[in-house]
């Protein structure tokens, strides 16, 4: 017999569509999306992890004028205890470990005795800020460029899409590195804006594609025939239908953003000393790998935890908005 494709053939309408269509209580679009999202277990796990990381990073060492609960700072040095080994222990004593213990320096200390937990938390804060900035900036630019090109067509579209092509011609990391070289000196906000300014091209193309196809749909035609203003058509009729694509890709932009920022910081082009990010920490301590490996492990684990969580959330959102869309990392 045939090999499986146990997925219901979409052309026939999935059985759940049928079931939902038949049921007496019609669900709203929002409810359906929420229900599908919460069915995605990895996405829920991602949300919990990401939430935990954010809370840990900001509550522990505090931020701005707000103090945190952790008594050490990421800049004050102290004497190095026990070769700077981490005191964190997660293995209960009956399993042969040291018991569940937080200790004096849970993540250890670096060579001048700075508490590494505080340092990693600081790096996490900075990396998160930059990643979210990248997400916001690239989504804003990508959505506007794509929407403008897709809606107005003609000359506007040609100019915008040519410009997008030019930017795509420069590999993302290269372009980001060039802009970050200048912006990185000006602090993390400038860095986030600069990287966001080069990572929007994929979204612009996606949104333009959505717009082109939505333009031709009856309800837009009808609105246009009724003399509705372009702006109103865009915001009232087309935008709501592209929200899914935009939200999903904003999420993935954040995941890509944290990898890009940490890579640039690793290369010395992103967050600069004396400030730290998860990437610059790895660059600082990569040579410590053979002797004090924890200095290398912790920041990496946090990068992976954040990126993986965000990617899972993105996958859950995509499933919720459009179960049939596929994904590419740019």
């Amino acid at each position: 017999m045939s090999t499986e494709t146990s997925q219901p053939n979409p052309a026939r309408g999935t059985p759940s569509d049928a079931a939902e269509g038949m049921s007496v209580v019609a669900r709203t679009q929002g409810q359906i999306i929420r229900r599908r999202f919460f069915r995605h277990r990895a996405a829920i796990g991602g949300m919990i992890t990401l939430g935990a990381v954010i809370i840990l990073a900001y509550s522990s060492i505090g931020f701005g004028p707000f103090p945190g609960w952790w008594d050490k700072t990421y800049y004050s040095t102290a004497s190095v205890v026990d070769g700077g080994r981490p005191t964190l222990s997660l293995l209960p004593s009956f399993l042969g470990g040291k018991g569940l213990r937080w200790g004096e320096h849970p993540f250890g200390q670096d060579n001048v005795g700075i508490d590494y937990f505080a340092l990693v938390m600081r790096g996490t804060q900075q990396s998160l800020v930059v990643a979210f900035l990248i997400g916001i900036v690239s989504t804003a630019i990508g959505a506007s460029v794509g929407a403008t090109a897709g809606f107005f067509r003609g000359r506007t579209e040609a100019v915008l899409m040519r410009a997008t092509d030019v930017i795509i011609a420069i590999p993302t990391l290269i372009f980001a590195a060039i802009l970050a070289a200048a912006a990185g000196r000006a602090g993390i906000v400038a860095l986030g804006l600069a990287i966001g300014a080069v990572t929007w091209t994929g979204l612009a193309r996606l949104v333009r594609g959505e717009f082109l196809s939505l333009r031709e749909k009856e309800f837009v035609e009808a609105a246009r025939a009724a003399g509705t203003k372009s702006r109103r058509i865009i915001f009232k009729h087309i935008m709501p239908n592209t929200v899914g694509v935009i939200i999903v890709s904003a999420t993935l932009a954040i995941a890509g953003g944290i990898l890009l920022e940490t890579a640039l910081s690793y290369l010395g082009l992103g967050v600069r000393a004396p400030d730290v990010s998860l990437g610059s920490l790895i660059s600082l301590y990569e040579t410590a790998m053979p002797t004090r490996p924890w200095l290398f492990w912790w920041p990496g684990i946090f990068i992976v935890a954040i990126a993986l969580s965000v990617n899972f959330i993105g996958d859950g959102l995509r499933d919720a908005f459009d179960p049939r869309q596929t994904r590419v990392r740019d």
Binding site: M1, S2, T3, E4, S6, N9, R12, G13
Partner: peptide
């Protein structure tokens, strides 16, 4: 539409999905 015409003939052909 949906009354099972295709599914019954696909069964004859042995072309139904494994599920």
């Amino acid at each position: 539409s949906g009354s099972g015409k295709s599914v019954s003939s696909m069964a004859v052909m042995g072309l139904l999905p494994k599920s």
